[in-house]
Simulated assay, not measured.
Amino acid sequence: MDAEPATDTRPCAHCGRDVPQRVGAGRPFRYCRDNDGACQRAARNSRMRHRNSPGLPGQVARTWEAVDRLDQIVETLTEALHAELSPAGVERQLAELRAETSAQVAAAHAERDEARRETEDATAAAARERQQARAAYAERDAAADRAERAEAAAATAAERVAAAEDARDAARAEAGAAQALRVQAERDRDAARHDLRTVRAERDAERRRVAELTTERDTARADAERATRSAAEALDRAEQSRADADRARADAQ
């Protein structure tokens, strides 16, 4: 049943019973509203059975079908407008507006509190950034000092590198000279080895000659000793003979 009080009735387009109508403007109700739309469905089914009939009955059925669809659309729009423009609808809209306004106010307060927190956070962040900036400046000065020391060390290192390169070049020159000396020394060594072999050969030959001379000397010495002994023996015999001769002369006198 409609919640609005009914002051007028109209017969149902299907069963003929009185259908209460709403007060005020709006399209009238054509079917019973207390049977969950049974009369409207029955009328629709009847028109569906006749919509394909030839001639005027089919045209009337199709026309009423179009009218029912339009009635449904109009009824939906009417109920929507009635719900929005009635005192209850207006009160509901006001309540929704108040709720929306309260929500917006709460959101504004929340945004204000959030803005305050963000301001406080920004202030703290700015203080931290200033402190970090001071630390960065100090670090920059320290880095500049380190850079100056590094440049001085680099200059010293460059001087050392130049000195090392000079020493390397001198060492290479000395190495070249040493290589030349080594080659010459090897040549001198080979020549000395050749001379040594020659000297050794001459020494061996001289040793052989010395050995031969020593042998000859020993032989001559032995011969001389034998000759000396023979001469001594001959001298002894001569002395003995002379003594014998002296005794013989003495005896002869």
Rank of each mutant, 00 (worst) to 15 (best):
Val60Cys: 10
Thr78Trp: 02
Glu118Tyr: 08
Leu70Cys: 12
Gly58Arg: 02
Ala38Tyr: 09
Cys32Ser: 06
Gln93Glu: 10
Asp113Thr: 12
Thr63Tyr: 13
Thr63His: 13
Arg49Phe: 12
Ala106Thr: 09
Gly89Ile: 00
Ala108Pro: 07
His50Ile: 12
Leu77Pro: 06
Pro54Ser: 11
Ser86Met: 13
Glu120Leu: 10
Ala95Tyr: 06
Arg51Lys: 04
Arg49Met: 05
Glu65Thr: 13
Asn52Pro: 01
Leu94Glu: 11
Arg51Pro: 00
Gln59Asn: 09
Gln40Lys: 14
Arg33Val: 09
Asp34Trp: 03
Arg98Met: 06
Gly55Tyr: 03
Asp113Trp: 11
Ala124Asn: 04
Ala38Gly: 15
Cys39Ala: 05
Ala80Cys: 09
Trp64Tyr: 03
Pro57Ala: 10
Asn52Tyr: 02
Ser102Thr: 10
Asp121Gln: 08
Cys32Asp: 06
Thr119Arg: 12
Ala125Lys: 04
Met48Ile: 11
Glu100Tyr: 06
Thr63Lys: 03
Ala106Pro: 04
Gln72Val: 14
Thr101Lys: 10
Gly37Trp: 06
Pro54Glu: 04
Arg44Asn: 02
Thr123Trp: 01
Ser86Val: 02
Leu97Asp: 10
Arg30Asp: 00
Ala43Trp: 01
Ala61Thr: 05
Arg117Pro: 00
Ser102Glu: 13
Asp34Met: 10
Asp121Ser: 14
Val60Tyr: 03
Glu100Ser: 02
Thr119Phe: 11
Ala38Met: 15
Leu70Ser: 15
Gln72Phe: 06
Val74Met: 12
Trp64Gln: 08
Ala38Arg: 15
Ala108Glu: 12
Glu79Ser: 15
Glu120Ala: 15
